[in-house]
Nucleic acid binder design. Structure first.
Length: 800
RNA sequence: GCCGGGGUGUUGGAAUGGCAGACAAUGGGGACUUAAAAUCCCCCGCUCGUAAGAGCGUGAGGGUUCAACUCCCUCCCCCGGCACCA
């Protein structure tokens, strides 16, 4: 088989692009900028198909924008801090820094083999002190503003990684990295007050019209804003109230008892001296030994005990018993609930178990009025208010608002907004991360490191073992400092920052990667930002994208940027599957991109991965598809070797059509159909021949997809200028106008005939022709024509 | 349960409300070849039919329309996010 010499060609052009600094970008206010960014990788040492897909999608867009005359910023770097490097270093008895640098070098080689058009002069690695210095700088600014703070609380703890985790890093109750079940631990830790931006984070989602719906939905879910009412239940015979929180204030008239969490501080006061005291205390002790998981598990029976006290429902002054139960948790809401057994399934089960009263207050439009005794489960749906005083007869959704407003006015409740979002825990008890720039002095307390003293360098060596707390705490030279205020011996903070801190602003650093005064040069950022197109995996839909949005809003408040959202458009590419499953080491179904490059070349791999599915959809790996892409490139290669200038009118027309389609498709990231159009174009050229112009346009349009291949043919055709600098072709709209068009003729919407007519034929004439069509005779003969619809240049529908 | 995205040939996937299945993969046939591979050309949704052709067909059922994969309603299934959050 004679195949084109892809190996030589690819090596040749990769070297030339590098030598010519082909894709280095410079801010230029005269030129329209385009900032194209793909999520930078963690330097594992090897690229996988997910990277190949992500970066190929970006590369096509980048090359296309260059050719359209944009000033393109297309940088690449490495998210280089993090646990895997530390674990690998432990395993291989080396230093994470050494290991990481090696990985970066290997990875760069692989990325270069793919022919990606990066501006390598802007490369950054987050593990360099020239980068993490600015993490510390940002942290200190946040500290000044009260947005970085330390507090003791119950935190997520991964016992395998021996470190804390942010809420966003807990997936299905397990560590996002190693899936070990996460425990709760009481620790004093550093937090970032992301909740200070919750309203904006939610509000600004509406600006992000070019983000995928599902990402917006996931972020909205995560922020979790819910409207509710805090209701005050007076305790009978006492001058105290119990606040409860509800999102279903429409069911308040059905609240027949209230429940306190076992840990609720009021419990002990309520039972003091009562006959119930001993029993309740015993119950509390029992509950305190149960884990949260058991208490909130759906299949474990809810246990509880009557406190002996009563409260008064403020809407109807009804006395209701106060219970203590395990299914109510102190962490949620106020640690106390109003129980509406008819309209909340948890309360229903509890009430049945303990023989508590029930009252229906919302009538289902389907089932109608039912007595509580007949209920087999709570009705949690919508309906009409009953037994609800002046609100009877209202739809519950309406009543919800009215009741809330009425209660607030009467001073018996307060409308409240609850959020799911919690502050971001950033302390990690690991070595390979940015040191938190804080000093503790026995006299002066907690002090920030002075800006002039940044960076706080991560010591080159530390006794990291993955066990036994922060490794930095064991490095004496690191820990022991003198207090910057009073000069007595003091010690440094020894936790490091979560690595998501590093990646929350790297897109800004790329604008001015060597800038030495601040994290980024404001003027450069003003020119390049926001990112016009961001591309990455859906797995970052919450974590990284939410944190980056938060940082951007913070920079805006500091006056460092003048925009609130960092990423204008977002594309989340689908995963690469093999045999219907995600490619992963543990499944053993990985296809190594390097082997494919060796066998077929990078251009073939790029072409296949773009052709096999639209970017945002899952892609099933198919070796035969690779063959197909390879065959296509060879077919184009032979075309160049032997094209004949025959009667090329047909090919020329097709050329203009193809330019239109490919241009529009690339703009809309529909690369699979863009490639399909190019294949059609080649098929037409095989039939009808081509001249220089036609071949040139084909090669140019192919170049974002298969850049080495196209560059080579372009040169062989005698062009001096590189193809990556060539102007993207434009089509002539006149060439798209057909002289004759095929008209579909339908009878009652079914295709019965087709005719070719001059495209400028008058409508009346067309109608006449259509009605006279021989093929239609059996269908319309003897039947009156009721209606005749003509869609110009497309079809005629005869309604009979 | 709530929110979001999907469901089209043997397969990956195409179709501003206007010829369903572009382009490819698989399969079949032909040309070239001593032969094979490669290459070039042709065919390829299902049913009936020698054929011409007809009927059916985009998860199911309704609706709107001259015309529905596309818009509306009800339902089923798959994927993802959130969830005993009061």
């Amino acid at each position: 088989m004679s195949v084109y010499p892809f190996k030589e060609i690819e090596e040749k052009w990769q070297a030339l692009w590098q030598k010519e600094r082909a894709f280095s970008a410079r801010a230029d206010s005269q030129k329209k900028k385009y900032y194209l960014l793909e999520m930078f990788p963690y330097p594992s040492g090897k690229i996988h198909m997910g990277h190949v897909r992500n970066y190929t999608i970006g590369d096509v867009a980048s090359r296309f924008k260059w050719m359209q005359g944009y000033n393109v910023l297309h940088p690449m770097g490495f998210d280089a801090f993090g646990q895997p490097a530390e674990n690998a270093a432990i395993k291989n008895k080396t230093q994470p820094g050494i290991w990481t640098h090696k990985c970066i070098e290997w990875m760069k080689i692989e990325l270069k083999k793919m022919g990606f058009s990066y501006d390598w002069e802007r490369e950054v690695s987050t593990c360099e002190s020239s980068y993490y210095k600015w993490n510390q700088w940002i942290f200190l600014r946040m500290f000044e503003k009260g947005l970085a703070y330390k507090k003791a609380s119950s935190v997520n703890w991964c016992p395998a990684c021996e470190t804390t985790l942010a809420n966003e890093e807990v997936v299905d109750g397990g560590c996002w990295r190693c899936h070990t079940e996460v425990e709760q631990k009481d620790l004093e830790q550093w937090y970032l007050k992301i909740t200070g931006y919750k309203e904006q984070l939610l509000e600004d989602l509406r600006q992000l019209t070019n983000w995928p719906q599902r990402v917006l939905a996931m972020q909205e879910n995560w922020l979790g804003k819910s409207l509710g009412v805090e209701i005050y239940f007076r305790i009978k015979g006492q001058d105290k109230t119990i606040p409860v929180f509800t999102t279903r204030v429409d069911t308040i008239f059905g609240a027949t008892y209230i429940v306190l969490a076992a840990e609720h501080p009021l419990v002990k006061e309520l039972i003091g001296g009562s006959s119930q005291e001993k029993k309740v205390l015993k119950f509390i002790e029992k509950v305190s030994k149960e884990s949260k998981a058991v208490r909130t598990s759906a299949d474990v029976k809810k246990e509880g005990i009557f406190s002996g006290a009563f409260a008064v429902n403020p809407v109807n002054n009804e006395e209701v018993p106060i219970w203590v139960a395990d299914y109510v948790l102190m962490e949620y809401g106020t640690g106390a609930i109003m129980a509406v057994p008819t309209h909340d399934q948890r309360d229903f089960l509890f009430a049945k178990e303990h023989g508590l009263p029930m009252r229906v207050v919302i009538e289902s439009p389907v089932a109608g009025r039912r007595s509580p005794e007949k209920l087999t489960e709570a009705y949690e749906g919508d309906g009409i208010q009953v037994n609800s005083g002046q609100f009877d007869g209202l739809p519950n959704k309406e009543a919800k608002v009215k009741i809330a407003e009425w209660m607030e006015k009467a001073g018996i409740g307060k409308i409240q907004t609850h959020w799911r979002l919690r502050d971001w825990l950033i302390s990690r008890q690991r070595y390979w991360g940015t040191p938190i720039p804080i000093i503790y002095c026995e006299k002066c307390g907690m002090l920030p490191v002075a800006y002039a003293d940044l960076p706080v360098e991560l010591p080159k060596e530390a006794p990291f073992t993955g066990k036994g707390g922060s490794p930095l705490a064991k490095v004496k030279e690191f820990v022991h400092v003198t207090c910057p205020k009073c000069s007595v011996p003091a010690r440094r903070e020894t936790d490091t920052m979560a690595t998501f801190f590093d990646s929350s602003w790297y897109f800004l650093r790329f604008c001015s990667p060597q800038f030495a005064d601040e994290p980024f040069d404001r003027r450069e950022a003003k020119y390049w930002m926001p990112v016009d197109q961001y591309i990455g995996g859906i797995e970052h839909a919450i974590l990284h994208l939410l944190y980056s949005r938060f940082f951007t809003k913070f920079f805006k408040d500091l006056g460092m940027v003048d925009f609130a959202e960092p990423f204008k458009r977002l594309l989340t590419q689908g995963m690469v599957l093999k045999d219907g499953e995600v490619m992963s080491k543990s499944r053993g179904n990985i296809v190594d991109p390097d082997l494919i490059i060796k066998k077929y070349g990078a251009d073939t791999l790029r072409l296949f991965i773009l052709f096999a599915a639209p970017p945002e959809m899952e892609l099933e790996w198919d070796e035969r598809g690779i063959e197909g892409a390879f065959k296509f490139l060879n077919r184009v290669w032979r075309l160049y070797e032997s094209h004949e200038p025959e009667d090329v009118m047909k090919s020329r027309k097709k050329m203009h059509e193809t330019i239109k389609e490919v241009t529009e498709d690339i703009e809309n990231f529909k690369f699979n159909t863009a490639i399909a159009s190019l294949m059609e174009f080649v098929n037409v050229i095989y039939q009808s021949g081509a001249d220089e112009e036609i071949i040139s346009s084909l090669i140019i349009m192919l170049s974002p997809f298969a850049p080495h291949f196209s560059e080579e043919l372009w040169e062989r055709m005698g062009n001096k200028e590189r193809i990556y600098k060539t102007k993207w072709p434009e089509y002539d709209p006149k060439m798209l106008i057909e002289e004759t068009v095929t008209i579909i003729i339908q009878v009652n919407g079914k295709v019965r005939s087709k005719i070719d007519i001059p495209s400028d034929m008058a409508e009346d004439k067309l109608k006449e022709l259509a009605l006279a069509d021989e093929k239609l005779r059996p269908w319309i003969q003897g039947k009156p024509v009721k209606n005749l619809i003509v869609v110009p240049r497309k079809l005629v529908n005869i309604v009979i």
